[in-house]
Each structure stands twice: as C-alpha cells, then as structure tokens.
Computed example of a mutant assay.
Amino acid sequence: MSMDRYYLLGRSGLRVSPLSLGTMTFGKDGPYGGAWGSTDATSRALFDRYLEAGGNFIDTADYYTAGTSETLLGKFIEERGVRDRVVLASKYSYNSTTPGDPNAGGNGRKNMMRAVEASLRRLRTDYIDLYLLHTWDRITPAEEVVRTFDDLVRAGKIRYAGLSDVPAWYAARAQTWAEAHALTPIINLQLQYSLVERSLEPEFVPLAQTLGMGITAWSPLGMGLLSGRYKPSEGRPQGEGRLTSAVGGEHLGLFNERNWGLVATLEKVAKELGRDMSQVALNWVAAQPGVGSVIIGASSLKQLDGNLAALDFTIPAGLRQQLEEVSAPAVPFPHGMFSNPYQLNMHGNAAVGDKPAGYTSPVFTGLAPTVG
C-alpha cells in the first residue's frame, strides 16, 4: 500500500486514499479543542503535508471543535484551490450550537437539512463529497435517514452517504431499504477499529462486504494506547499522552491486563520490524478485510510523517499472527456456532468451502478491491 494508490470506497466509483486525514483536533474551540486541539498554523501545516504526500480523503464533522474544524478546512481548501481534488467527508448528529432545541440535534430530516446547510457555509463549498450520520440517536427510523440522504444527493448538496457508529442491524436496514426503493446507497461505515477494539469483526465486516459499504476506521491507535508512548518494558502507565491525564486510560477502561499484554507484543513486533509501534498498529488496521481507509490524526508534523510512513512495509504472516492472537476478542454468541465442529456436523462431515480467490472480481479492476 502507498498514499498514491487509491481505493474504491464501498460499492461506488469514489476513489480515496488508504489513509484519511482526521481533523477532530483542528482548532481550539469546544470541549475537546481546549484539551488537545491544534492552533490554526499547526492545522494548516498538517493539511498541507497530507496533500503533499498524495492524500485526498479528509474527515471532519460539524461537532469537531464546535465547527472550527470545518471553518479552517474551508479556508485551507479555498486558499489552495483544491476543492475538486479532495474528497471531503463531514458528519451531523450532535447539537453543538443551539442548546435546548431538540430539533437541532439527532438524526431526523429537519436536523440533517439544517446541519448540511451550516456545514456547507463553514466549508465554503456548495457540496460535500461524503456526508455521514455521526452517531445513532436510537429514535430516527433508518427509512427517514435514507430518504433524506437521497434528497440531498438529488439536490446536489452531497455526493455520497454514509453511517458512523450505528448498530449493524440499523446499517443493514438502511442499505436494504435504499436498495429496495432505488435510493442513494450507503457506501461507508465509519467505526472504531484497532488491535485494542476488534468487536466489529463478527458483524460489521461481513455486513460491509456483502452490502457494499467500505469501512473507514477511526481511533486505529486505540485512543493512543498503541502510539508508542505506553511501553510495558518501561513501566506502566508511562508516557505523556492524554491517557495519563485525569480522564485517561483508567477512566476509559484501557489500562487492563489484556491490553498491557497486547502493547507488550506490539512493542516486540515493532522492534523486530525496526518500526514505530504506531506504524505497525496502523499497518495492521489498513490491511484488514473490509477496511477502505484508516483515519489518522496528528498534533505535529513529525507525528503525521510517522503515520504516513505506516504503509511502507508489510507485516510478515508470523508476526501478524502474534498480534492477532494477543488481541483476539471473545467470540460473541452465536458466532461460535458458525465454525467447526458445528459446520462439519451440519454438512454431514463433507468438505464445504468458499470459492477460491479470483472467482469474483472487483467492479473496477484498475484498482485494488475496496472490501474483502
């Protein structure tokens, strides 16, 4: 993999970089910006460096730094004249501007229409390439979300639609409803995925592969636990990352025996490869089935350069197996029943397998498949 090789996102013709620039830290406003946001100058430097490396996929949301992330991106994109080059993704769901107004948040049609207009103004553009529901609100029917996405595509305000942080059944309902009624399909699922957090594998990966949705992985470094700042060989918890703050690793439940064993193995594998721990962790996610792009964030050019170099090598099968064994999550019910010996018994102990590789081909053979 490399930054100058672009992948189709889901079952679509949209080509994106294997690493996406996450801009949650662009700006100092809002509850998170004040804690770890970047200045305008640093944000601009990160944006420029990402483009210079060949990246084209930029992720933001109206909630990030209370809208400042979108405002800065709009300014940077306009000043560089790269609107047609970049694939700009933004999200809606959260009420960060109008406390007390129940319709200024959530996933409903009224809020989506309001939010997209506000994002377009901040981003200084007349369309958003990929627009996502940010987080499931537990209320709005999937049919309403899909119909509104379709209206926005027809109006030319967005090009593609996606879902972030929703249950698998909800994503399946949305996609099948879109297919059944010839509406704009969902091409992207944005989900947390890392060696620390692998719970999406039993449901979301086959869902994405079957229904044509490319996964974009957020927090691929496990909230920073896999960044290399926390090394069991040097004592735990050590490092200057946010996980050692008052609201950190202990509060998030990250500092536990399972994760320290994982970090220790990652440290060992990284040393054997002569790579940073963060690069190995990013490389692992980028090569996983179903993943179309990995969202990376950075607070400095040095950190961004290190992340961008995460695609320059391949993890040997033996070392990859070590990482997967130490990070393997418990198999949730009923998935344990979908493997041997249950399957052998079901098929009369006859050998039954999948078709060989190459039996089916990607839609666009000039590029690597998006999923699978």
Rank of each mutant, 00 (worst) to 15 (best):
F333D: 15
E203S: 09
L195I: 10
S278N: 11
G224M: 03
P185M: 02
I186P: 00
R122N: 10
S194E: 04
L254S: 03
V82C: 08
G22V: 03
Y50Q: 04
S233F: 07
E117G: 02
G241I: 02
Y50C: 09
I139P: 08
G33Y: 00
V153G: 02
K355D: 12
Q322E: 15
L73W: 06
E52Q: 14
G74S: 09
A281V: 03
P332R: 03
L73R: 00
Y63V: 13
A142M: 12
E144P: 05
R114Y: 03
W136M: 00
N188M: 00
L344V: 04
R173K: 13
N340Y: 12
E179N: 15
L133M: 10
P237E: 12
L19P: 04
P341S: 05
A351L: 15
R236H: 07
G37T: 01
G108M: 09
F333M: 13
P220H: 08
K271E: 14
T140M: 02
T360V: 11
G348I: 06
V153M: 06
G30D: 06
A350Y: 11
E117M: 01
L211R: 05
I128P: 01
D4S: 12
T216Q: 09
L46R: 03
L72A: 01
Q288D: 05
A351N: 12
L8H: 15
P329S: 10
V291F: 07
P332K: 03
G27A: 03
P206H: 11
R154H: 11
A351H: 11
D29Q: 13
G34L: 04
G67Q: 02
S2C: 06
G27C: 01
I315V: 15
D101Y: 06
Q343C: 10
M223W: 11
F338R: 15
D59F: 00
V205I: 15
G81C: 02
G249V: 02
H251Q: 14
Q303D: 11
N340P: 04
G228T: 06
N307H: 15
R80W: 10
P356V: 04
A53H: 05
A178W: 00
T71R: 13
A281L: 07
E179A: 14
